[in-house]
Amino acid sequence: MKVPQQVARLGVVFAAAIAALLVARSFLVPETFGELGHYRAAAIDSIAAHPKKYAGHQECAACHDDLAAKRAAGNHRGVACEVCHGPQQAHVDAPLDVKPPAPRDRGFCPLCHAYNPSRPTGFPQIDPVAHNPLRPCITCHDPHAPVPPAVPEECSACHGQIARQKALSHHANLPCVTCHQVPQQHKVTPRVIRPTKPAERAFCGRCHAEGASGPAEAPRIDLAAHHPRYLCWQCHYPHYPETQ
């Protein structure tokens, strides 16, 4: 059968177009494309070659071994040097030309240590307005091995949100130690040695049981009848009781 003229002409045009595309493709596809997957393998190398700005605390320790040792033994042992001193690869490359900044004003430390209720309780927090106003933090605290100047008497140093909520509640006048026994070691290893919590209903009953001798305005309940399965604080939040 004779091929129609139209088909022949169109065939030539299409064949030429496809051939041109294939030729162009063989020239234009990047060399390393497809080596590792559907991408340019060389891209990994160029990304890996990006210069680093943060040297890493190991680099700092190579020269500043004294400070590194001090830091490693103190409460900032997990805080890398460049958290406060900023990215210092430039200083590593040219130790004499580039000097790392050291934030000495009161603006920097509160980034971590200003009171903020969203922070986990137990994290040391202060109120920057009330806490020794105008004095730079480093007059009292050594940033490389910070400790409170005296072991804190006030639980609020680390439990700010609880202290604030309690201050607004009917329990405002109760000191923490009324309900919690705090071992001295809690201040040294706070996560290992924990304060106690009231272990029996009768403890709260000293104020809240019927006929208790506490303040008259404290609500009273029948300890025997009122949900005897639970300790009081399993339902009520004593730092901020429901009735205010």
């Binding site: 922070r119 137990g122 680390c158």
Partner: peptide
């Protein structure tokens, strides 16, 4: 109220 169980301490 946030968690008042786990005091956060820097890791080793």
């Amino acid at each position: 109220m946030t968690r008042d169980e786990e005091p956060s301490v820097a890791p080793a």
